[in-house]
Every structure is written in structure tokens, then in C-alpha cells.
Design a binder for these strands. Sequence first.
RNA 1: GGAGAAUUACCCAAGUGGUUGAAGGGGUCGGUCUUGAAAACCGAUAGGGGGUGCAAGCCCCGCUAGGGUUCAAAUCCCUAAUUCUCCGCCA
Length: 426
Amino acid sequence: MLDINLIRENPEKIKELLKRKLWDTDFDELLSWDNRKRELIQSVEGNKAEMNRLSASVPAAKKAGEDVSKIFAKVKEIAANNAKNEEELKEIEDKIFNFLAALPNLPDEDLLGGGKENNKVIKTVGKKPEFSFKMKDHVELAKSLGLVDYDRGAKISGRGCWVYTNLGARLEWALVNFFISEHLKDGYEFILPPHLLNEESGFVAGQFPKFRDDVFWLSGLEPQRFILPTAETALVNLHRNEILAEEDLPRKYFAYTPCYRREAGSYRTEERGMIRGYQFNKVEMVQYTKADGSDAAFEELVGKAESLVAKLGLHYQVSKLAAGDISHAMARTYDIEVYIPSIGIYKEVSSASNGRDYQARRGMVRYRDKETGKTKYCHTLNASGLATSRIFPAILEQFQQEDGSVLVPEVLQPFMGGIKVLKPIE
RNA sequence: GGAGAAUUACCCAAGUGGUUGAAGGGGUCGGUCUUGAAAACCGAUAGGGGGUGCAAGCCCCGCUAGGGUUCAAAUCCCUAAUUCUCCGCCA
């Protein structure tokens, strides 16, 4: 949610910034509502003050033996006159709220406008692996190594779902455990949130109202709940409607959850196997900071996500996203992208974003400034740390050997009972 | 799933229609006393959102949330959320 004061003060500038996010809008109507709203407030509240005064005078008048029916009639008359304006005020407040709620976050000013085509690779680590033999893709490897059973996944569920089997399940779980242990080392607090969230949580995270159809809704519960598309949705709602103490910030959380997404839209044929499914595992980091702490927190989160990929020994790059490719609720995003040799493409394994006060405003997440005693909005940030569904294929493909085996990254071996190599099954 | 009870400020809690502008206690903060502390005593402590104003201030809304009744609601009515107790069912 944007601060309407920003729009009042400089509508042209806000318009221009939103345009970089590929969002065309006009504020004339909003600003006229805003003016009308203040007019109505003054008239409605003035009348209320008068009504309050009259009502309060009743006990004294009664005691003095005066006829109070005139006071009753007068209050009723004012109330009747006020009713129409009150109704209009409510309508106009709803309109303003809905307008503001639909706007995306403002992009940081240093970002390029436009979509994906303006993303910039700002860092590349490692080299594309070269194979002296015919390399296999991760689907083939996962099958030959007995790690993933796509057929039985389709049988018991359907398209877009798979089964991790045996060492595949252990590799997947080793990744999750490795991530968890790294975050614990860095002093982040481990959270296991519910996977069923209410409408308000989706709103605060910025997924709703625009992306209501991108998540799975549960029938049979009233009011309705949805299954989380990312743990971020749960984590940024933890302190909804709370005022935190300044010394409690920054708060650093991480959570492991599966993520459930409809991913309505086109599947690219290259996205085989587990590149894009309805359900995938992810460890997510979220920080709550003071306004002036969010830039540093952003760097920290990017660094953490990167270090996980680096410690696994994978070849990856970091991209600074253009304003139009950043998600609705975010002001700034860097993607960590890992190289998938079979398709020759870098795929996102982590998206680190600074939401600034956009989510905090929607959820009234504030802290008390120690010096002034005033409340201020927190900043919220999130970064995957990491999603396994692209790391798993990347490991299989980047670390495959000529004999069809795959080397297990050293950092994962302790979490896999010391297994160093995944060998093809007979 | 069924029945009942509860929800008041940082915490506990009084309050069943009209100076409630919410008692009282605890805690916290400040002060007196003290070498320092404790104790005792004195004082402060409703947060938040909004309107108006240069400001001081004034006004509106806030007793879980949303509606309603009334000249007037923490108080009466309806709906919802959450918590607790009991029963049922279950991991």
C-alpha cells in the first residue's frame, strides 16, 4: 500500500515511477475523492460533536426538571441530516482504499524501467561446466539414479507433481537441512508456520487482490483459506497489527514450507521435470527492519542466498531485476540464478527483495521510535534461502560424471549419512 | 461436531444505560530519603487512527471485530473471531 501523502505531494513523480513498473495510472480521480473526503469529514464530525454535546446535557436538564424531548428531537434531526454524508464518506473511503490497495509498490529509483529484457547480470560465479561425454538432463539422471519417480507421482496425484524416492528424498532433505543449519548459524529464528492462511494474510503480503487466482483455495472451511504459495506470506504476517520495540529490530526469521502454486500460464517445453511444479520445497528468509536498516538487510539477504549456492559449488549468476520484472509488492529484487546445463539457461533459485514499507502499511506493522516515541512503519524483506526444485536438477546436471553417477556436494554429505556419490541403479 | 463461559489499557482487574473524560492494584518511568541499593512515601503512565490549526490546542473514532437499538452504549441486541471448560471424534 502506498502512502497517499506521496501521491498528494507529487502525483507526477509517482506516476512516472509506477510506469517503470509497467503500471499506467491516473491520480486525478483519486485526488478528487481525497478532497471530497476531507470536506465530508469536517461536516460529519462537526455534526457528531454537536450531537454529543446535546446528549451530554440531558442528565442535567432532567435534574432541573426541564423538558428534554426538545433535545431528543434536535439530536434526531441532526442525525438524519448527517446520514447521507456519512454514507457518502464511507463509500469514498472504500473507493480510496481499494484504489490504493491495487497499486503496486514503487520501484527503487536506480532501477531500469521495463520488463525482463532490462534485467542486468551483475555477478557471475564459477564457470559453465564442460562435459567430455554426452551429458544427461536431470530427468534422465533422476530416473537412472532412482531419485525421483515421475510416473508414480502422476499416478497418485497428476501432472506437475512427483515423488522423491530413496536417495532422492535424502538429497532433497539434506538440502533443506543444510539451509536450516546455515540460517541457524547466522542467528535467524526458525519458524514452522501453518500452511493454511486466511484472506487477510494474502492481502498484507500483497498477493491479493490482484493474484487471488494464483493460489489454491480450500473448500470446506469458512471463512475460506488458501494454501501458502511461499512461506513469505506467513512470515510477513507474523507481526501484523503489532507495534514492535525499536530494540527488537531487525527481526530475522526463516521457515521451511512446501510452496503451492497454480502457476497459471504457459509451461515452456524446456521446463521439464521439477523446474516448475504445483508443489516445491523452499526455505524462506524474512527480515523486519527499521526504515534506515533495510538497505543493509537487503545486502545481507542477497549475500546469504548467494553463499548457499556457492557452498554447494554450483555455477550461478546474480541478476538485478528491472522495475517491471519485480513482483507487485516489492521495490527491489535481485535474483540468484543457477545454471541448468541441459537447457543452457540460468534458473532462479532465490529471489531477494526489499518490500520497504509496502507490506507493513497493509498490515500495520510498526515500531516505536525510541527518540520521538512515535510509531513508524517497519520495512519487510524476503529472500529464498533456497528453493530446492532448481538446485536439485542443477546438482544432478552440473555434477554428473561420465559413468552416469553424480557427486554429492561436500556440504550435503553430513546430512546424507556420508554418501559421496549417487550411483545409477541396476 | 455439540454445550457453556470469557475477551476492558503494558499486566491483573472493577464496572449492567447518563460528569466513565474507565475505579483499584501490579509493573514501568521520574522524584524524596540513602554512601549506594532495598523499603517507604510522592508524582506520571491510553495506546492508536483521523480532521483542523504556525502552534498551544480543539474535535471525531477507539473497552476483541463488524453491524444494530437509543437523545445517550464498555454496559442492551445480532453476527463473527479468539481463548478456556466439558462432551463427542480423532493423529
